[in-house]
Simulated scan of single mutants.
Amino acid sequence: MRDALRAMVEAITRLETRLIESDRLPSYSTETIDIECLTPEGEWREVASTSRRTDFPTPNGHVPLIVFEIAFGMDRMVALTNRKL
């Protein structure tokens, strides 16, 4: 899933992208991986993050839920895309 998201961001922004382990791990996450774009100035900018969340309530008698979250910074995506126009 993350590779597909990375490719989608790259296609939209037309910038080189990468997946990188986040420098901060939220308390609700067992793993957080960021999607970053390389700006024309040579700086990597985070545009999205993906996390495996563990803080969702467990329904009675069911297995605890692990949820895959995708959080896009749409303002960042738009800003990077508009730079190319």
Score class of each variant (00 low, 15 high):
Thr30Met: 03
Glu46Ser: 08
Arg52Pro: 00
Lys84Arg: 15
Leu80Trp: 05
Ala71Leu: 03
Glu10Tyr: 10
Ser27Cys: 03
Met74Ala: 09
Thr39Met: 05
Ile33Phe: 09
Thr17Gly: 12
Ser29Pro: 00
Thr30Asp: 15
Leu80Phe: 10
Glu36Asp: 15
Trp44Ile: 00
Arg6Ser: 12
Thr17Phe: 07
Arg76Asp: 00
Leu15Thr: 01
Leu65Ser: 10
Met8Leu: 11
Pro40Asn: 04
Pro57Ser: 13
Glu41Ala: 12
Ile33His: 13
Trp44Asn: 12
Ile12Gly: 02
Met77Asp: 01
Leu5Asp: 10
Val67Ile: 14
Ser22Phe: 07
Met77Gln: 00
Glu36Leu: 08
Thr81His: 10
Phe56Met: 12
Phe68Thr: 14
Glu69His: 00
Met8Trp: 08
Tyr28Pro: 00
Arg76Thr: 00
Asp23Gly: 12
Arg18Cys: 04
Leu15Lys: 06
Val47Leu: 15
Leu80Glu: 11
Met1Tyr: 10
Gly61Met: 02
Asp23Phe: 03
Met8Tyr: 09
Leu15Gln: 12
Asn60His: 07
Ser49Met: 01
Arg52Ser: 11
Ile20Gln: 15
Met74Glu: 01
Ile35Pro: 01
Arg6Asp: 06
Pro59Thr: 04
Ser49Leu: 02
Pro40Cys: 07
Met1Arg: 08
Ala48Val: 00
Leu15Met: 14
Lys84Trp: 05
Glu16Met: 11
Glu31Lys: 09
Ile35Arg: 05
Gly73Gln: 01
Gly42Thr: 09
Arg2Trp: 08
Ile20Thr: 07
Ser51Val: 01
Ile35Trp: 06
Val9Asp: 03
Arg45Tyr: 07
Leu38Ala: 09
Ser22Trp: 03
Arg18Glu: 11
Asp55Met: 05
Thr54Phe: 06
Ile35Gly: 05
Gly73Pro: 00
Ala71Trp: 00
Asp23Glu: 15
Ser29Tyr: 06
Val47Tyr: 02
Phe72Met: 13
